[in-house]
Structure formats: structure tokens, C-alpha cells
């Protein structure tokens, strides 16, 4: 059943000196089922010095992400984050496949539903007729079998919705919350 698939979109942003994150759970139409966000965290000057370059990854993965995942009553089927976050070496502990989706400029594949493995963790997925395929990048913790299962779910959801769009929505929502809070 397509309706049973839940997609969790995670995004953490930095607004000024504060960090905050949001987790949006949608159905396969992109309609929100749940949305959680954290209060802005402003590290002190001393904390910034002590943590150094590890401050931002630590805040995003250990503090914000874990807090949001704990709040979810049921685990999502797919945990989707931005390609930048994934490329930075995601080391969270989500209990579902972790991946990033990105629009590509590649030549369309033969037909809808076709996949092309560009790398051990990089797969192209054709979602719409004549359109550029979607680029799907998996975290290192996702093995090949889990990747195949996740691709089937993405194909099902991609038929109804734009898989990359909800991340933008989370970003806009977080920014509006910061403005509202200030």
C-alpha cells in the first residue's frame, strides 16, 4: 500500500549564531503527517572554541537529529536528508535506510522505473517520462539489499510527488519559525 510508506525529511539550518533542525514526515503524496522542530541552540563562545570544527556536525547529528528521531512515535520507512549533509559523512543512528535525493542533469533512462547504478552507493532512478533521472545517494550503512528495497519505495512515492521538494519546505518552515521567535 502506497499510503503506508512514510518519508522522513531532515534538515538542520544555521540562523545567525543559532542552530535548529526540523523533521517532516510525509506520505507518498508529500502531505505532512508530522513535523517536529527543535528550539534554536546557541552555543556559547567557550563551547565554540572547545568544539572547534566538530561543533556543527555534533550539533546536527548528535543533538538535533537524535532529539527529533526520539520524538517520532513510529519510525519512518526512509530517512532523507540533503546531499550536502550526507556527503559530509553522516553518522547518525536512524533505524531505516538513510539517503539523499537530488535532481540530476543526466540523460533520461529508457523508461519509468529504470535504475542505473553509478556507484556502490549512487543510483539513478527514472521517475517521469522524458525527465532527467533522480539521483539517489545512500549512506554507507545501507547495504545493497536495503538499497533495493528503498528504491522500490522511492519509485512508488515518486509517482505521486516530487521527492526533493519537502526538504525545501522544511527549510522555509524553520526560517519562518526563527523569524517568528525573534
Amino acid at each position: 500500500m502506497a499510503e503506508s510508506i512514510k518519508l522522513a525529511y531532515f534538515m538542520a539550518v544555521k540562523e545567525g549564531a543559532s542552530y535548529l533542525g526540523g523533521l517532516l514526515v510525509t506520505d507518498t503524496s508529500g502531505i505532512p503527517l508530522d513535523f517536529r522542530y527543535t528550539e534554536p541552540i546557541t552555543p556559547t563562545h567557550l563551547q565554540s572554541i572547545l568544539y572547534g570544527k566538530s561543533l556543527e556536525p555534533h550539533l546536527k547529528e548528535e543533538v538535533i537529529q537524535k532529539t527529533l528521531l526520539k520524538e517520532l512515535k513510529t519510525p519512518p520507512d526512509l530517512f532523507i536528508l540533503s546531499a550536502t549533509e550526507l556527503a559530509g559523512g553522516w553518522s547518525g543512528d536512524a533505524k531505516c535506510p538513510v539517503l539523499a535525493v537530488q535532481k540530476s542533469q543526466e540523460t533520461p533512462l529508457v523508461k519509468v522505473g529504470t535504475t542505473f547504478r553509478a556507484g556502490p552507493r549512487d543510483i539513478l532512478l527514472q521517475l517521469a517520462e522524458g525527465a532527467a533521472p533522480l539521483r539517489v545517494m545512500f549512506a554507507a550503512s545501507v547495504d545493497a539489499a536495503a538499497q533495493e528495497q528503498a528504491m522500490a519505495k522511492l519509485l512508488e512515492a515518486g509517482y505521486h510527488m516530487d521527492l526533493t521538494e519537502p526538504l525545501e519546505r522544511v527549510t522555509v518552515a524553520l526560517q519562518s519559525l526563527v523569524v517568528k521567535g525573534s
Binding site: G22, L24, S29, G30, I31, P32, D34, F35, R36, Y37, T38, E39, I41, P43, L46, Q47, L50, Y51, H58, L59, V63, I64, T67, L68, K70, E71, Y159, H160, M161, D162, E165, R169, V170, V172, A173, S176, L177
Partner: peptide, 27 residues
Amino acid sequence: LDPRLGDVSAQAGLEAILGLPIPIRAE
């Protein structure tokens, strides 16, 4: 001086996200 970053509380903000336009693709 405890360098740990304080615990963060999560807020439910479904109303905030529902107010944003949601694109629905035609079948």
C-alpha cells in the same frame, strides 16, 4: 564549566508546515 551542549526540546509544528503550499503532482 560543563562544555556539553544542553538538551534540546522538540516542538510539534505541524500547523506551521501545513500553512506552506504543498505541491501535488498530477497522476
